[in-house]
Amino acid sequence: MKQSPLITLDELDIGQSGLVCSLPHKAELKRRLMALGMIAGTRITAVNKSPCGDPTAYFFRGALIALRRKDAKNITVAVSGIQ
């Protein structure tokens, strides 16, 4: 197994899941995501891309949440190499 590489959330492939490493710096966005239960260590899965390619629906803490690419770019995720 390869070492866990750090990628940004928008790079997560559909169906792939990872652990959140860091949240965005923008205070408001961070606050919202935390209220939804996203903290470092939360498991997150990319579920579906919208027909236009953006936003993408992510699954975490039992709910499906759509995020735009520009916001997802500011979230880093650790993925476990090739499964």
Binding site: K26, E28, L29, R32, L33, L36, P55, A57, A63, L64, I65, A66, L67, R68, D71
Partner: peptide, 12 residues
């Protein structure tokens, strides 16, 4: 302005 981030919940 500081454009609001888009967070939308897709309910079951």
């Amino acid at each position: 302005s500081n454009a609001e981030s888009f967070i939308l919940e897709l309910p079951p």
